[in-house]
Structures are given as structure tokens and as C-alpha cells.
């Protein structure tokens, strides 16, 4: 049995009186790609933010490579501790709105964290950053500022930026939702390559084609719980649950 990269047990997350996650269990094996689907407000994005403790859960356990990351100094307070920063260095995240640093060039976006967090030399960080940007097809955009890049290019810079920290897991939060349709493919292609190289990925997405083709597991969430999960063909083509059927019906109608 392959080692579980991420293991979530009984995750509850509340924002004030609103309970966004109501007991979620999920296991992601090493090298596995898990696609998370669901209507807006179902808790998908919050679930991702739990994994890197951007939104630490109030209840439940999170194991990252076998280590319980909710324990230890500072856990549960939602604030700084060696634990949080250490966790986030192993978990990369890419956001719907890219969130590139607008005052930095593409290359500087990629090199900042390795330099400031890992203490890499400028030279080393630049060499690695350049290689990463080449890998996502942006060798000619190293010194461009984000506002001079298309959405698809920005998102690929964001992927390279996350990869620069050599994460063991990557979280993708609706990374193509803010893109013009013709720019979606270049980002999905980059993600597909990453999956083929064996990266463990949790992908919140509305791209059914991607989920079916690249996903090893598809999870359907609604109302803060996992409604259905399984192989992509099973969940997407033969959903058992009525809620899943209804959601897929609405999405595929488009």
C-alpha cells in the first residue's frame, strides 16, 4: 500500500457561526491527483486551505507524510509557529486570482521565497527560477512584470513560484476559473505535465475533462461534506448520489 501523502480525519472548519466543513475525511496517496468538484460554497477551497493551514481546522487531524501537522507549537491558534511555516514549505499552492507579487518580475516572484525562506543564494535561486520558468514555457518572460503578462502566463508563473519551494504536495484552487477560455489549456497542460512527473496534487476545479483525464480520484463535495468519491469514470459517468447527478447535469449542460 502506497504511503499516504495527505490524510484528513474528521475535519471541521467554522468561520464564526458558519460551519463550512462538517467532518471531512480524505486520503491522498503519494503521486496521486485528486480532483475536488462541487458547487460554490461547498467547502472545496476551505478544504485546500486546511491542508496548508491557511485556514486551520477547529477539529480533526491532518497528517502530512505521516506527521500530524495540527499538533505542535502554535497549532490551532491560526498563527505563527515553526510548524506552520515548515508545513507550508512542503505544500505549494496556486490560487484562482494568481496572486503574483505585482512589484516583482516573473523571475523575482519565483526566487523570493527560496531566497528569503530557504536562504538560497541569489545566484542559485535565479538559476533554479529560470529553469522553472523555462519548464512552464516562459523562458522569454523572466524579466516581465505580472501586469505585462496574460492571465495564463501569470498562472504559469504562479505554478513555477510554488514549485520553487520544492513542495511535496501541490494545491490548486480553481486555477483556471479566472482565465479567458483560450488561456485555460496552457495552464491545464502545465498541470498535466506536473502530474505525469509524479507530483501529488489536490485540484479544486470545474474542468471535467481534466478531472477525467488526469485525476486518479474524484471527490464531489456539497454542504461541507464529501458526498461521493471514487475513480473519475465512476463519479463523473456513473454517479451514485442524486446530488452528484444534479450537479454534473447542471455543469455539463453548458
Amino acid at each position: 500500500m502506497p504511503e499516504a501523502m495527505v490524510q484528513l480525519k474528521g475535519i471541521h472548519k467554522r468561520f464564526g457561526s458558519l460551519e463550512v466543513l462538517k467532518g471531512v475525511d480524505l486520503e491522498v496517496d503519494k503521486g496521486e491527483v485528486v480532483c475536488i468538484l462541487g458547487p460554490s460554497g461547498s467547502g472545496k477551497s476551505t478544504l485546500l486551505r486546511c491542508v496548508n493551514l491557511l485556514a486551520p481546522p477547529e477539529e480533526g487531524e491532518i497528517f502530512l507524510e505521516g506527521e500530524d501537522i495540527c499538533k505542535g507549537p502554535g497549532s490551532g491558534t491560526g498563527e505563527q509557529s515553526w510548524n506552520l511555516d515548515y508545513v507550508r514549505q512542503r505544500v505549494g499552492m496556486v490560487f484562482q486570482q494568481f496572486n503574483l507579487f505585482p512589484h516583482k518580475t516573473a523571475l523575482e516572484n519565483v526566487t523570493m521565497a527560496p531566497e528569503k525562506v530557504l536562504g538560497r543564494s541569489k545566484q542559485e535561486a535565479r538559476a533554479k527560477g529560470t529553469a522553472l520558468l523555462e519548464r512552464v514555457g516562459l523562458a522569454d518572460k523572466l524579466n516581465q512584470y505580472p501586469e505585462r503578462l496574460s492571465g495564463g502566463q501569470q498562472q504559469r508563473v504562479a505554478i513555477a513560484r510554488a514549485l520553487a519551494m520544492e513542495p511535496h504536495v501541490m494545491l490548486f484552487d480553481e486555477v483556471t476559473s479566472a482565465l479567458d477560455p483560450e488561456l485555460v489549456k496552457e495552464v491545464l497542460d502545465t498541470m498535466r505535465e506536473l502530474a505525469e512527473e509524479g507530483m501529488t496534487m489536490l485540484v479544486v476545479t470545474h474542468e471535467m475533462g481534466f478531472a477525467k483525464e488526469v485525476g486518479d480520484q474524484v471527490v464531489f463535495m456539497d454542504g461541507g461534506v464529501i458526498v461521493e468519491q471514487g475513480a473519475p469514470e465512476q463519479v463523473l459517468d456513473h454517479p451514485r448520489e442524486e446530488r452528484t447527478q444534479r450537479f454534473l447535469g447542471l455543469v455539463l449542460e453548458r
Binding site: L54, D85, V91, F95, N99, A113, K116, A162
Partner: peptide, 27 residues
């Protein structure tokens, strides 16, 4: 400065202070 900037910096393992210094305050 949009909240996503802090989130992005923190998700890269930067401390609150490092995020302020290198990402938030310069903007």
C-alpha cells in the same frame, strides 16, 4: 493591498514578518 498577497506569501512558507517586509509594505 489585496488579501491574496498575504495568503500567497504565507503559502510559500514566509513568516508574517517576511511577508510584510517583502510583499505587503513595498506595495
Amino acid at each position: 493591498v489585496p488579501g491574496g498577497q498575504m495568503e500567497a506569501a504565507r503559502s510559500l512558507g514566509m513568516s508574517h514578518f517576511a511577508a510584510m517586509r517583502h510583499v505587503i509594505v513595498p506595495q
